[in-house]
Amino acid sequence: MTTHKIALVTGANKGIGKEIARQLGQAGFTVLMGSRDLARGEAAAKELVAEGLDATGIQLEVTDEQSVRSAAEEIESTYGRLDVLVNNAAIIPVGDDAVSRVESGVLRSAFETNVIGLVSVTQALLPLLSRAGQARIVNLSTSLASFAQVGDPESRMSTVLTLGYNSSKAAVNMVTVMLANELRATGILVNAADPGNCATDMGGSDAPRTPAEGAAVAVRLATLGSDGATGEVHAEAGRLPW
């Protein structure tokens, strides 16, 4: 059993997820890099190990209940606890579009991964997080889930027509608040992080922020002290308006 704190990051084989894993590793965590494709997760972990970090790949498909159970069992048998869970895995489904045009199957796929998968992973790992004492849960969100910003016709956010992604991430914000309320007496803090528009497969190569910049707010929330916030959504500049 390692004496290091243990962190699991879902969707950690690339993009913001890999940068969150890297920065947690640099902060002294043993990092478990969840990936649908184990080989890709192991390759990403090998990259971090070459940098002197403690990282390992773990197979985790958030929409597959057996995969989620197996990952939880593996973490329990190897480490006995979990100090940080970062729910990073998410999709903008192909065909995501405006309310008047989006197909129902596209909406389903967004919610299956971004909400139901997130809740499934969190439920499976809560017993291990409870063993860690002051554990932290961070859910990746977005300004596109902010009613205040999307509702402002002067905001760029009002022009992004991806109902599946926006609405599923708004649901993630509600999951965050409700779970924070549920765990308020346990010492487990639950928050959501908006990384901003980053140059990833999801954000596109011309996005203004780097994955490392986007990862920083999630890492900050993952390492909050005992007096830290809970039930909030934060971007780099601070708390995000709902």
Rank of each mutant, 00 (worst) to 15 (best):
K169S: 08
G203S: 14
G203V: 12
T142H: 05
L221E: 02
I188R: 08
A148N: 03
P153S: 05
N197V: 09
D194P: 01
G225W: 05
V172R: 04
G151P: 11
T223R: 13
V190F: 01
S167W: 00
K169A: 08
D201M: 12
T162G: 04
D206S: 14
T142N: 09
V175G: 06
T230R: 05
R220M: 12
A171F: 06
G151V: 03
V150H: 06
S167D: 06
A185C: 01
L179V: 13
T223A: 08
M157G: 01
A148G: 00
A145R: 06
G187Y: 06
F147A: 06
V138L: 10
N173H: 04
L163T: 15
G214P: 11
T210L: 04
A215T: 07
V175F: 14
L161D: 12
D201W: 04
T200E: 02
S167V: 15
G203N: 13
F147H: 02
V217T: 15
V177G: 00
A212Y: 01
T186A: 04
L163I: 13
L161R: 15
V177H: 04
M174I: 13
G228V: 13
T223L: 12
V177D: 00
M157Y: 15
A192F: 09
S205P: 11
I188N: 07
G228M: 14
A222W: 01
A229V: 12
S158A: 15
R184I: 13
E154G: 06
P153N: 10
S155I: 00
S141T: 14
